[in-house]
Computed example of a mutant assay.
Amino acid sequence: MPTNEKQQSTGNFSGFAPYVATKGEEYMGAPMRAHFTKILNKWKQDLMQEVDRTVDHMKDEAANFPDPADRASQEEEFSLELRARDRERKLIKKIDKTLQLIEDEEYGWCESCGIEIGIRRLEARPTADLCIDCKTLAEIKEKQVGK
């Protein structure tokens, strides 16, 4: 990255400057899709590296402790790591689905009402598939059903 560009954070994605649309630029045109493709691919790469680190850590740290308390602590630690990796595995699937939407030129529009989700919302949550209004309504309905 050239030295005159500041590294900024976009959501959880360090190294990506917020997208600045040019005057008259079409929403989700090729440059915008390329921006989100880079963000999603970097996020996926980071998640995959974390999976590899977990596997290496579990191999390196696996020990047969004679003390049941030590063994239980290790098993609990591994269980927590595996749950986190399972959530990340599901997120990787969602990232892949989102990358396919970009490729199909269907990314960036609300699945519920069809309006633009918006660049800032997508930068904060690149896998978002609902606009903020539909997401808010869905959460309200979820809370009502949950009671």
Rank of each mutant, 00 (worst) to 15 (best):
K6P: 12
L40V: 03
K143N: 05
F13I: 09
T136Y: 03
K93R: 13
Q74K: 04
H57C: 01
P2I: 04
G114S: 09
C113V: 04
P126D: 15
I140M: 10
E105H: 12
E26M: 02
F16L: 10
T127K: 00
A63Q: 13
L82N: 15
I119D: 06
L47W: 06
G24Y: 05
E111Y: 01
E61G: 08
E75Y: 02
K6Q: 13
P126R: 10
C113L: 04
E50H: 07
K97I: 09
L137G: 04
I117Y: 01
L47M: 14
A17Y: 04
D129V: 00
A63L: 11
R83T: 14
D86Y: 10
M1C: 07
E106S: 09
I39F: 03
A17T: 12
A84M: 10
L40Y: 01
L82V: 13
A128H: 06
I132S: 07
A17L: 11
L130C: 01
S73T: 11
R85F: 05
R53L: 14
R120P: 01
E111I: 00
E142A: 09
E61L: 05
K6C: 08
L130N: 00
E61H: 07
E75G: 03
K143G: 02
Y27V: 00
E26K: 04
K44C: 06
L47S: 08
M48W: 06
A72G: 02
V55I: 15
E61A: 13
G146W: 03
W109S: 05
D56T: 14
L99P: 01
Q74P: 03
S79M: 11
I92S: 07
N64W: 12
R83M: 15
S112H: 02
A84R: 08
F36R: 08
R120W: 05
H57D: 07
A21W: 06
L130G: 00
I132M: 07
V20T: 03
D129Q: 04
D133G: 01
K94E: 15
C110A: 05
E105M: 07
T98P: 02
A84I: 12
L82P: 04
Y27G: 00
S112Q: 11
T10V: 15
G29H: 08
R53S: 13
E139N: 02
I102M: 06
K141M: 11
C134W: 08
A128V: 05
M28G: 05
L80H: 03
Q100I: 04
D86Q: 15
S9G: 04
K93L: 10
P18H: 15
R89E: 14
D60Q: 09
D70G: 07
C113A: 03
R120D: 13
L40C: 00
D52H: 07
T98S: 03
I102D: 08
D56G: 06
F13V: 09
R33D: 11
Q144W: 02
T98M: 02
D133W: 03
R125D: 09
K38R: 12
G11P: 10
G108V: 09
P31Y: 05
C131T: 04
Y27R: 00
R85A: 13
A62Y: 06
A21G: 09
L130D: 02
M48S: 12
S73D: 13
E111S: 05
F78R: 13
L99E: 05
P18K: 14
P126Q: 15
K94D: 13
L137M: 10
